[in-house]
Amino acid sequence: MKKLLPLFALVALSPAYAATPEETAREVLAKSPIIDGHNDTPHQIAELFDRDFSKFNLSALPADVLAKTHTDIRNARAGFLGGQFWSVYVDAALPKHEAVTRTIAQIDVVRQMIARYPENFAYASTAAEVERAMKAGKIASMIGMEGGHSIGDSLEILRQTYALGARYMTITHSLTTDWADSATDAPKHDGLSPFGFDVLAEMNRLGMIADISHVSEATMHDVLDKTTAPVLFTHSNARAITPHPRNVPDSVLKRLPQNGGVVMVTFVPGFTSPERRQWEFERSAVAGRAKTEFSGNPVGEKAAVDAWIAANPQPKATLAQVADHIDHIRKVAGIDHIGIGGDFGGVDELPVGLENVSTYPALFAELVRRGYSKSDLAKIAQGNAIRVMRGVEKAAGK
């Protein structure tokens, strides 16, 4: 006579009691909270509050402020944020000395933020410190400089920003520098200049991650040709899905397995949605024509652009489109080369379903629906980013 399964076993085996995608996502993120590669809240603190921490409480921001920062502690906790590279951003067009000064001021903003909320944030400069902070229930807080202009063409300043805590530097921002070509400016060096290679070598020696978001395709390849350590794209998507110069072409994605680097998929609408990218391109063309047609008549110029926008509503990016980029990167580079770099606080608008830092689990639930395993989710959430940090430290002999 066959033994009957106990009732609790039958319940566990019943499809009706299978975990939902949302439950699976939350289960994984509870064990492997997200490490995000790029968040511009420090910039928002400078812009909205002039770096005065007495003017706000980051524990829970009012709705109008949260609409700009997309980040406060309450929502970060709800979103299972375990580690954050806080962006140290200053305008790429600043004179060199001013860019350096403001970069140091922004590093101070991050340091103050961590110090003022010690029950939630813990400064981390190594992979081991990140893991230790998360184990203690804190949000591991790292510093990333967004743009090579931040060092004022000086290896000495590079070394000192590392000493102050910066653990990655984006090789360029929106403008080409004296030593590296940007994705969104005219090229001058066909990638890196000789001094650019010196900067990269010094970053490798220090143990500072080379972030190759924002750089031209030629610069991406130059970095991959010469770096001795894994790289990050801290906030970029797949160019094959959305043909924006800020995104990563397949020619570069194919090289990531050899390098060990990671693309931290971003939520910027124009990098995410092909329709949004095309709309932005057409709007720019309309604005250019209006500027010529209504030269000296700013009212007429604005009216022409506004009329075009009214007739051509702006498309919205979606959470599913972010997942499409993850799918493509997995197909070309592999699951070990994907992370998350939302760019919260750095954009005026976000994809539907990803409006602030509380929404990470919704993206991971979508990946569950697409067949990603728990192991896959853990790698995307944090495992791949920690591996890059360890690889950079190993290459530096640390």
Rank of each mutant, 00 (worst) to 15 (best):
L48T: 04
T69Q: 09
K55A: 10
D50H: 12
V88W: 05
H70K: 09
A122K: 15
A128M: 10
L66A: 05
P95H: 04
S54D: 13
A133F: 02
V130Q: 04
T101E: 15
A136M: 14
S54V: 08
H43D: 01
E98G: 04
Q84R: 08
Q106C: 01
T126N: 06
Q44T: 04
T69C: 08
L94E: 08
A60P: 04
R102H: 03
S125A: 13
T69L: 10
M113P: 01
L66G: 05
T101C: 04
I107E: 08
A140K: 01
I73K: 08
A124H: 04
M113K: 08
I73Y: 13
L94K: 12
D52W: 11
L66D: 00
Q112L: 04
V88Q: 13
S59Q: 14
G79L: 08
F80C: 01
V65L: 08
E98T: 11
E131Q: 13
N120Y: 14
R102E: 06
F85C: 09
T69W: 13
V110K: 07
A124R: 01
T126C: 07
T101G: 09
R111D: 12
E131M: 09
E131R: 12
A63H: 09
T126K: 11
A63D: 14
D50R: 11
W86G: 07
L81W: 10
N75G: 03
A46S: 14
V130R: 06
P42S: 02
N120F: 11
S125C: 10
D64V: 03
G82M: 01
E47Y: 15
I73G: 03
I107D: 06
I73R: 09
V90Y: 05
I114S: 04
I139V: 05
K68R: 15
W86S: 02
N57I: 03
L94D: 08
